[in-house]
Design a protein around this nucleic acid. Structure first.
Lengths: 145, 145
DNA sequence: TAATAGTCTACTTAATCGATAGATTTAATA
DNA sequence: TATTAAATCTATCGATTAAGTAGACTATTA
């Protein structure tokens, strides 16, 4: 299950994607519409900024905004930031690889092998979902209602 | 990432699967070959027993053994025991459903919709991997080495 | 009945999660 | 230039969970 931090970051990013190219969005505006504790959201947005997802403008008329276009940001990127590895085991991860410290030979470990297979498919799916896809999905669901 | 508890339980179950129909296996034997702290392993096996995965025999010649055959126990079942929901969001879970408390209308929430899609595929994959599959995989990897 | 092996209760310790408070810096505008 | 609006930084906090340990107890069987 995703942490609140990750959930909040996704909610915030989708919100910013909806306001893409419409100027900066206030923290307090995101906080209110998405029901996220303001102070907590501040720290999340700051981290998103440090990692190149968003940018901000200080002072009057300031706020946060997406740097890249909504179809250039996918779920896999966002999850990795706050959750770390996508794989279920460290020995099956690429970007966050670590030995599990249990099996004698990683190359022939059956557990690792199947977990890797799951990981590969999960990453493939997550990369296939961008912020733009999520917004389109929402519009489709509204239409067919 | 899976908790140590879950990892240890998978290691222990695979071990028991390898010894299926060969009589009870000692906690200390599992602890030693799989490098799992004994006391911690005790509590894990107890929980696996309470949940119908294994059974035990006390006294001399005792130990733990699988109840069901290794091809009848899959990854999804095992993960759910110690990790809870497989879905990344509570609103996308079946067996552990909870409202997320953020969107106005769950039926048209784009985030939930894509997370559900990922969940469905993940569960499908996990159900496809049994303890027997993991052991077969290991044998295949050894053969092709 | 002695030895063996699982079971139960109760801790402990460290890390992480979720969140808040308050002071500071930056920028726009009146 | 003073005022105000925003983001930023530092620091801390309480609650929960993860990981693991200790030790007494119970059941089995040779």
């Amino acid at each position: 299950m995703l942490s609140k931090k990750t959930r909040y970051s996704i909610l915030a990013m989708v919100k910013l994607a909806k306001e893409y190219n419409k100027g900066p969005v206030l923290i307090s505006s995101i906080s209110e519409t998405e029901l996220i504790p303001k102070k907590f959201l501040e720290s999340i947005l700051l981290e998103l900024k440090r990692n190149g997802f968003v940018n901000s403008k200080k002072g009057k008329g300031g706020g946060y905004y997406l740097i890249k276009s909504p179809d250039q940001i996918n779920l896999a990127d966002m999850l990795r930031l706050f959750e770390g590895a996508i794989a279920l085991l460290p020995c099956a991860a690429y970007k966050y690889y670590e030995s599990c410290g249990h099996c004698k030979d990683e190359q022939t470990c059956g557990i690792r092998s199947v977990i890797k297979e799951i990981r590969d498919e999960t990453v493939r799916m997550m990369k296939g979902f961008s912020l733009a896809d999520i917004i389109n999905r929402e519009n489709d669901l509204l239409k067919n209602k």
